[in-house]
């Protein structure tokens, strides 16, 4: 009598979305300023002869597209998790200060340690600094909220807002004393920009994000109950403290990975979970995996637009996502704030 989610349905939908993602990635890798053919790219070339189609396809476009997919999946999944944890449809992966923490980390690396030239596992000092900044900020916000005691969620949000504001001020301070090339790099970073990375980076961060999303799936029934109310979830026998901690840590980790790869790509983590919820409903067992896959599709498509729309120049992908996401967010804001009084809960 009821249309409840079953494992076969879920698996079918995940496979279909994965198939769609593959198709979009393939299609997008053929788009660009240089016209290439897949057939030629896959042709074996004689030793010593450079096959330009192969080089463009495998060394330029595909890594970038895979990177966009990783970032999109991480942001959308973590956005869905934070919306559940904070019981706030307007939450996104950056709401607890990750963005400004990572931004501050990045700008410190760009301005103060600009002479550093090493890479570790294919990552630059900027990426590391942003990653550390992101996690340190979430840790700080989490600790502050814990110290305030009761009504944890409201205090998390408030602490996040305050820390965001303070770190943004520090970012502005550092930007104002930086030289013009550093400012240019900072701005591109803050807008969210995807560039080609080393294959090693793709493997490590891709594996990391995938593992995080996989682990989050196993606490999704608990997230369903938590997205209602913490006391209710606890009264139903759910270990709310453990669920919250695991969810926050995993969401923060995959967001920090995404941010260290791409800078601050906005809106993907906010609008993708909403889109998925609108079509498939709010059940997190389905929402998390589908948000990840559709987030990947969304960002691959957005980054392809960013590559080709003003070719041969390129836009930062964050500009494209913000142009699509901004109006969408306003519609959401009007739709939800009418009936949700989340601060009171």
């Amino acid at each position: 009598m009821t249309k409840l989610l079953t494992p076969p349905t879920l698996l079918t939908r995940i496979l279909l979305a994965a198939l769609m993602l593959t198709a979009v990635m393939l299609a997008c890798s053929l788009l660009g300023t240089e016209h290439i053919s897949l057939k030629k790219a896959l042709e074996p070339s004689a030793p010593g002869v450079v096959n330009p189609d192969y080089e463009i396809f495998f060394r330029v476009r595909l890594p970038r597209i895979i990177l966009a997919a990783i970032v999109g999946a991480a942001l959308a999944c973590s956005g869905a998790v934070l919306q559940a944890l904070l019981r706030n449809p307007l939450a996104d992966p950056y709401i607890l200060g990750i963005s400004s923490g990572a931004g501050l980390g990045a700008i410190i690396a760009i301005t103060i340690f600009s002479e550093l030239n090493w890479t570790l596992w294919g990552r630059s000092p900027i990426a590391f600094s942003a990653f550390v900044g992101a996690l340190a900020t979430v840790g700080l916000v989490w600790t502050v909220a814990r110290l305030t005691g009761k009504s944890h969620v409201t205090h998390l949000l408030l602490a996040g807002v305050v820390v965001n504001a303070f770190f943004s001020a520090m970012i502005m301070f550092l930007t104002s004393i930086a030289n013009s090339s550093q400012v240019q790099r900072t701005i591109f970073w803050l807008m969210g920009n995807i560039i080609e990375e080393d294959p090693l980076v793709l493997w490590t961060s891709g594996g990391f994000v995938l593992a995080g999303i996989f682990a989050l799936f196993f606490i999704s029934p608990q997230l369903n109950a938590l997205s209602f109310s913490e006391v209710d979830a606890k009264a139903m026998g759910i270990n709310t403290a453990a669920t919250q901690t695991i969810a926050f840590v995993l969401a923060a980790l995959i967001t920090a990975v995404a941010v260290s790869l791409s800078g601050l790509v906005g809106f993907a983590g906010l609008i993708v979970p909403h889109g998925v919820r609108l079509v498939f409903g709010p059940d997190h067992r389905q929402l998390l995996p589908l948000s990840a896959l559709i987030g990947a599709i969304f960002l691959v498509a957005a980054d392809t637009l960013a590559r080709i729309v003003v070719a041969p120049a390129q836009l930062p992908v964050g500009v494209v996502t913000a142009l699509i996401g901004g109006p969408f967010f306003l519609v959401l804001l009007v739709r939800y704030s009418r009936r949700i009084d989340w601060l009171a809960k």
Binding site: L4, Q83, S227, F228, S229, G281
Partner: peptide
């Protein structure tokens, strides 16, 4: 109360 996300009666 009305929860923030659109869960159905049976899901709840």
């Amino acid at each position: 109360f009305i929860p923030p996300f659109g869960f159905s009666v049976i899901q709840t």
